[in-house]
């Protein structure tokens, strides 16, 4: 697992303050509350590598991934891209804890033209209420799919919008990002290829970490870009915990 340890000596002094806030003799009892307040604010720029720092994220359910994401989890809102060489590499398994928490909040999950049939028994097994899952059929035109994605992102009732769109222009991505911000919604785009200059604030890549001697179960998840992280980090996760 790669972390930011080799990086810390060259860091600005702020980061050390965060890490050793409890032990610092100059900080009294009350400072921990202030600290917590500061750490839970995603809008505050701290001028340091945020990987595994702060508390403003929503836990992914995978400890290794939390450790390399800014705010220790998924962002509350915005757009993210998940890049896999094929569909079905465990990208949905990665999101299942998130879906569960969104359904528990009473919000809806909208699947916009998924490439295969969404299979309800698996959702039930994962603890997701299928009454709060909606799907837009596969053969919807790209224009309509994007329209529904934008509208869904703007709606406060939708907590998560999943869409399978391989290539989208920067302009469209920015528009979706704006829509997600107005609706406090998380939008996920699944893609096959990474585009370097994508404006999405979070880009993940899932790859197989298969080698003859490694265990079968782990996949390599790379955080290519995350708002707050200084560089891309990767970790190995067992995505199929139940299977």
């Amino acid at each position: 697992m790669t972390t930011n340890q080799n990086h810390s000596d060259t860091q600005l002094p702020y980061q050390n303050q965060y890490q050793s806030a409890q032990a610092d003799p100059f900080h009294g009892e009350g400072s921990s509350d202030i600290d917590e307040l500061i750490q839970s604010n995603p809008k505050l720029w701290r001028g340091c590598d945020m990987a595994g720092q702060g508390m403003h994220g929503r836990s992914t359910g995978f400890a290794q991934l939390d450790a390399i994401l800014p705010g220790r989890g998924w962002p509350e809102k915005g757009l993210m891209e998940i890049i896999t060489p094929h569909w079905g590499m465990g990208e949905l398994q990665l999101l299942i804890p998130l879906m569960r928490s969104i359904v528990e909040q009473g919000k809806w999950i909208l699947w916009i033209s998924p490439p295969y049939l969404l299979y309800a028994p698996a959702l039930v097994q994962a603890g997701i209420n299928t009454e709060q899952v909606l799907m837009v059929k596969l053969d919807t035109s790209c224009k309509d799919a994007l329209w529904s994605m934008e509208k869904a992102l703007q709606t406060k009732n939708c907590g998560l919008v999943l869409a399978w769109q391989n290539w989208l222009p920067t302009k469209v991505l920015r528009r979706l990002q704006l829509a997600a911000d107005t609706g406090d919604t998380l939008g996920v785009l699944f893609k096959h290829h990474d585009s370097e200059h994508s404006p999405s604030p979070l880009r993940l890549k899932i790859e197989d970490s298969y080698s003859e001697n490694a265990s079968f179960n782990e996949s390599e998840v790379t955080v290519i870009k995350a708002r707050g992280n200084f560089r891309s980090l990767s970790t190995n996760i067992n995505l199929y915990q139940q299977a």
Partner: peptide
């Protein structure tokens, strides 16, 4: 949500929005 679903159906067509159940 109802308003949103109505708009979705108005744009995509009646049977394009599906719910899944077990």
């Amino acid at each position: 949500l109802n308003q949103f679903m109505e708009r979705l159906q108005a744009r995509l067509g009646e049977n394009y929005v599906k719910s899944v159940s077990n």
